[in-house]
Design a protein around this nucleic acid. Structure first.
Lengths: 193, 193, 193, 193
DNA sequence: AATGAATGAGCCTTCATTCAT
DNA sequence: TATGAATGAAGGCTCATTCAT
């Protein structure tokens, strides 16, 4: 693939989040991409053969490798509280930017075809694993209260996804901030009185 | 509408949850209902003019009036812990029965048309209000720890929805039970040591 | 057919002109009649089996028997000018009441099925015949100029139909009056100067 | 649009008059065009999105710019009588070719939607204006009798449309010729006796 | 005489997909 | 690489018509 082809591919992937956020997963058509990218049918099909393919490529690109980042931060001795705060800040920013709508699209995607389920499971497992490591790290450093790390990690992942979805329609920015702050406080080692 | 008509309408509404759970909201077609109910196009259209209409009627029928039940239970002096346990048991049963898939369909429904957003908001607000009342009742009876009732109610509602969604693909029955138990424990008044 | 049935039939025929004027011939459905008459499918079908049947019955009922009236008026020695004026006044009133739209519907009707053509021909022939007799009567009485009665009658019938159609969209009431007056003047015996 | 597309568009427009003449305006379906053009649903929709659109395009293409032709002929000093004769010959040829049926379709078209009315009015106004200019030209040259040009023009336009419609079912070619000849004679300057 | 439930055909419209250029 | 014409299937919707009640 030469430069022109590669740039077209990027144009398509850049258009993807906006489209999927606006219309959901299954409602986006190949024609939507043609219009959004100023591309003809044939031109689009040269790069992707279905919206599923585009959706997957989009997720692939957007997959922030938190695990890797976290590893590096731990090596550098960054405090766990700092890392959690950064993670939650990013989550909040994403939610305000419409992450809930993409999350919804991702659920649709997983639901659309049995072969997509593995993807959803992997996504969830990776998030839980990352969060588990982070919590254990904080507990080891005495920053976080003693708790069942994996169980708590699961709670966080599930809750954050619920918050993403609720953020689409029902919950405003202030509520999101408040909920995230409560979540954060819940793991901190209590001050000795 | 005579008896025959009413029974057909029921047949359609009975077919609805299964279809929407299987395919999501937007992927269900009127033809799906024709097939599921053994009804012709015209026969179906006599009762409903769109899948949106069916979806709304289905939600309307399924709307368990928790608020009312709760009021009655409070009057009867039922313990708050008992009420919460019952609520969570029901939630668990629903999740195992596929409530997450319907929840996903409901999100799709709300997303599909701006005019449907109010429905999602009302659904969320009602759930939060009901849970707030329940928590305040338990706190007043000294059964629950002192906590910000509304804030906690929001947390529960959001988390439960996240759990419903996660239950579709990522989380199994045992995990669901464990998560719900943790949630329940988190509000109990701690035993005096 | 008893009284109730007869009255229902009348209700249908009374609704017909309004419906056909509003929507044209082929665009009116049996359902339109159901709604307009507050009648069910079965109830309507008991009286008429198609819109064509209703349309024909409507025309049949509305067919003013000009020929007969004219015969009587001639016997009574009514002046030809008077008779023509009355005829044109009626035509004008009809046009203002939407006769053009019914005329359009009638053309549609004739066009819809080869078997309906005879109806249009008969309608035209009857109008020409009637007008021919009238003109000859006026010429015999010296009221009208000497002219080819049949040829002129045809001209009148064609022109009046054109005026009906034009009156639907393009020509207003004043124009209609002016055109009809010109037509009337054209046959009068010129005053001796 | 490339050559293939243009040719397909032409094929569609060429099929239009025949279809609309045969079935009227509202009775023609997109499927009729598919069949008439050997085109698939999707292929047809690439070019036109409704029969209304095709109908309009057809009229647009067929719009003979009489006003322009007339202007040129006047500049060249062509006699008014000659111009009128040509116009009437063309009208006669059109009628024999089925112009009445298209005229009927055009009335249906205007009737079908309030937004189409302007089209009918413009069509009528243009015809009257053109004819008015022609009559005034002939009167200025002393070829035609002194008469109210606009009033007469309106008469002609209305009558010709009536004749088109009558020509569909009721009036044969000979009658048409006779009527047109009478119309022509009616404006000529009378021979000095 | 009337109701209204149901059928099935037919039209409208959109979309994924292919293909000649 | 890219264009855009074309296909055919699928889904939405309406209507004339029938029929049990």
């Amino acid at each position: 693939m030469n430069a022109a082809g590669s740039s077209t591919r990027l144009r398509i992937l850049n258009a993807a989040p906006g489209l999927f956020m606006d219309k959901g997963y299954a409602q986006v058509t190949m024609a939507d991409f043609c219009q959004a990218c100023g591309l003809s049918r044939g031109g689009l099909y040269r790069h992707f053969h279905s919206t599923a393919e585009i959706f997957e490529a989009m997720l692939q690109r957007d997959k922030t490798d938190w695990a890797q980042k976290m590893e590096a931060a731990m090596q550098a001795g960054t405090s766990a509280a700092q890392m959690v705060r950064r993670y939650l800040e990013q989550a909040q920013a994403d939610m305000l930017a419409g992450a809930g709508r993409l999350s919804l699209a991702a659920y649709e995607y997983a639901h659309a075809d049995p072969s997509h389920i593995a993807f959803a499971q992997a996504r969830y497992a990776a998030a839980v694993q990352m969060m588990t490591v982070l919590l254990e790290y904080g507990m080891a450093r005495g920053e976080f209260r003693a708790l069942d790390a994996r169980q708590t990690a699961r709670h966080w992942v599930i809750f954050l996804d619920g918050l993403r979805m609720a953020g689409v329609f029902a919950v405003d920015g202030a509520d999101i901030a408040r909920q995230l702050d409560t979540l954060y406080q819940s793991i901190l080692e209590e001050e000795p009185s």
